[in-house]
Write a protein that binds this DNA or RNA. Structure first.
Length: 626
RNA sequence: CGGGACGUAGCGCAGCCUGGUAGCGCACUUGCUUGGGGUGCAAGGGGUCGCGAGUUCAAAUCUCGCCGUCCCGACCA
């Protein structure tokens, strides 16, 4: 603020020339100047609401609207008003400062021609999630959901040599996604601001460095934003990604499930999380140990069968019949391929893990007629016997048998007999049936042991605020970016992509710190750091002291909001508590003793502070140490 | 895209079933009052009842269609 002072005076002067009539005295002019330099509540637009809109469900949504930060324009489309804009601007400022340390900021178009999305193949794969439009000539355009294509287009046109690498390019801009279901205020929207960065390196070792730079920058950004976050290993998808981590903030409003260890640093999302299982003592062998059919009339579920036979579900096999859709390499036609999964009876299958196991293809449960055709038996009695048709994963089109790792090494399990009303005892993998592969298909559940340290795992819902991702060669190859390496050989640069959701930082911060009266933001991202409440605007001593304190702190470099409205103190206190400002100074009767109250919003604890000690007081509290 | 709910003043809601002058609280305007946790009193302003058709002498209310918003699910680079 201070360094912009001369510029501001100039602008204000110029702006006012037009309306500067003879009637306007110099002091009037200076008053106006003062209003602009000092943020006076009485002259600002901060439309606070006593009640939240009926549409709002999650805390941050209700409070953002109540505090006058945002207003809704349509489903998943929001306007940012004065306070909301100040806060997101501060967040962007922090992101920009830290990103400038590792990369270069660009400004890219949101309006993209179809061609570059055709080149990467995403014009079709993005499907309905992409906003599309036509120009007057009928040419297809879309609104950018992310900017791999545009960045890679620049790279392919401009980068020629390994000597130009590495490059880290970033932007902080609006993105558009036609979400099937916008929800939870700013958490899931159709237009939002994102910082996205892209790295180009000559080799994997270079990518490791770029990736690490982003990891460090992200930690600094989220630390400075005052968030309590965790970094988790993420499901990197089937397409080329080798490493991927997500920065998550725990909150019940979140949409993602995150597994984390109570003791050590282990954390992963559900699609990736693993756990150590307590070992199970297998059932004893009866008779000769060969497969033994048992009559289980009407017992279709694992629960039924285990109870009926008087065994734990841990000794049973759950047989799941799925289908994947794959494309024939030669004809290009899609066809289905049966995938039979064996899980321990009490375990849940994770579809993302399954999808990863089969190379990222779409999966769905088998239909009744497909089941009958493959097993010659009805659902409820399926089992691994007679699955000799199971083939190699690469043997396109043929059925495969995937067995969860929890069953590896187990013996004498109980599963369906592929015959109505019958199950089979003494099933042992590798002996009675032969898996295509053992793979981890199981969803971790809370309380299981951490794979690192053995402590209990917890599962929380969380919001993703950042994501770093080793892209590999997907875009550089498909879009034809090439540079010459040291040997003069043409190679595709290896890429990384790195995103941060700006509004999600604000939302997560509010979710982390709110009560029924409002919320409090970390000073670094709050629209104002301090609100000075003049408790009685008719009392000249109080009014003057409020002005003086506000000006003093403003001069010291703080962002100060002076509540000079002619309102009752109760109204001002309620509003101050609502709007997210972390510190409040109540200026009241005690000014006659040169004393004011400082209130920390997070605790609502009040402290009497001498006027002469105000600056000193805040020097101690301010995290960025003015 | 499947399931559910809602749409009446800026916000929160009643009225609809049983058709007949559109109401309450907050907010807003004016005056007085009050001045440390949304002060009190008085007088006001503000509504094509989401849109369109239909039934009817008459529709916020009944019927049909459309649009919009929210919730659950599916989806989520």
């Amino acid at each position: 603020m201070r360094e912009f002072f001369p510029v501001l005076v100039y602008n204000v002067a110029v702006c006012n020339l037009a309306s500067f009539t003879i009637k306007d005295s110099l002091s009037n002019f200076l008053d106006r100047l003062e209003t602009i330099l000092m943020h006076r509540w009485s002259q600002l637009f901060i439309p606070t609401l006593r009640e939240a809109p009926a549409d709002a469900e999650v805390a941050s949504h209700k409070l953002l609207v109540r505090a006058g930060y945002i207003r809704q324009l349509g489903a998943g489309i929001y306007s940012f008003l004065f306070l909301g804009n100040r806060s997101t601007q501060k967040i962007m400022g922090i992101v920009r400062e830290e990103m400038d340390k590792i990369g270069q900021e660009f400004y890219l178009p949101a309006l993209n021609p179809r061609e570059i999305w055709e080149a990467s193949g995403r014009w079709t794969t993005m499907g309905e999630n992409m906003f599309r439009l036509k120009d007057r000539k009928g040419a297809d355009l879309c609104l950018g959901m992310t900017h791999e294509e545009v960045m890679t287009d620049i790279a392919r046109k401009e980068l020629r040599s390994y000597k130009q690498l590495p490059q880290i390019w970033y932007q902080i801009q609006t993105k558009f996604r036609d979400e099937p279901r916008p929800k939870s205020g700013l958490l899931r929207v159709r237009q939002f601001i994102m910082k996205d960065a892209y790295s180009f390196d000559i080799d994997a070792a270079g990518l490791d460095v770029s990736y690490l730079k982003h990891y460090d920058a992200y930690c600094r950004i989220f630390d400075r934003c005052g968030l309590k976050y965790m970094v988790i290993d993420a499901h990197s998808g089937a397409m080329g990604g080798s490493q991927s981590q997500e920065f998550m903030v725990r909150t019940p409003a979140g949409e993602d499930q995150v597994v984390s260890c109570e003791k050590c640093s282990y954390a992963a999302n559900m699609e990736k999380a693993a756990s150590k299982l307590a070992s199970v003592e297998d059932l004893a062998t009866e008779g000769d140990g060969g497969p033994l059919e048992v009559h289980t009339p009407g017992q279709k579920t694992i629960e039924d069968v285990a109870r009926f036979l008087g065994v734990s579900q841990k000794h049973t096999i759950k047989t799941l019949a799925m289908v994947i859709t794959e494309e024939d390499a030669k004809t290009g036609k899609t066809r289905t391929r049966p995938v039979v999964l064996l899980m321990r009876g009490d375990h849940q299958m994770n579809e993302a893990k399954l999808s990863t196991a089969v190379g990222g293809k779409a999966t769905r449960p088998m239909q009744e007629d497909e089941i009958r055709e493959l097993f010659r038996a009805p659902a409820g009695y399926l089992g691994p016997l007679g699955t000799e048709w199971a083939r190699d994963l690469n043997d396109s089109g043929k059925p495969i048998l995937l067995v969860d790792t929890a069953l590896e090494g187990r013996t004498n399990l109980i599963g369906g007999a592929n015959k109505e009303n019958y199950h089979v005892k003494h099933l042992t993998p590798g002996k009675n049936f032969h898996p295509t592969a053992y793979v981890d298909l199981r969803s971790v559940t809370a309380g299981e042991d951490c794979p690192n340290c053995g402590s209990p795992l917890r599962i929380d819902t969380a919001v993703e605020i950042g994501h770093i991702f080793k892209l590999g060669y997907k875009y550089s190859e498909s879009m034809g970016a090439r540079v010459l390496d040291r040997n003069g050989k043409e190679v595709a640069p290896i890429m990384g992509s790195y995103g941060i959701g700006i509004e999600r930082i604000l939302t997560a911060a509010i979710e982390q710190s709110n009560d029924e009266n409002g919320f409090w933001l970390p000073p670094s991202i709050a629209p104002f750091e301090v609100v000075v409440v003049s408790t009685n605007s008719k009392d000249e001593a109080i009014r003057a002291a409020s002005e003086a304190i506000a000006r003093q702190l403003e001069t010291a470099g703080y962002d100060v909001l002076l509540d000079d409205r002619d309102e009752r103190p109760g109204v001002k206190f309620k509003d101050a508590d609502l709007v997210g400002i972390p510190f409040r100074i109540n200026v009241g009767k005690k000014v006659t003793e040169d004393t004011v109250e400082v209130v920390r919003r997070s605790t609502l604890l009040k402290e009497d502070v001498k006027l002469s000690a105000i600056s000193e007081y805040f020097r101690g509290l301010h995290p960025s140490g003015h």
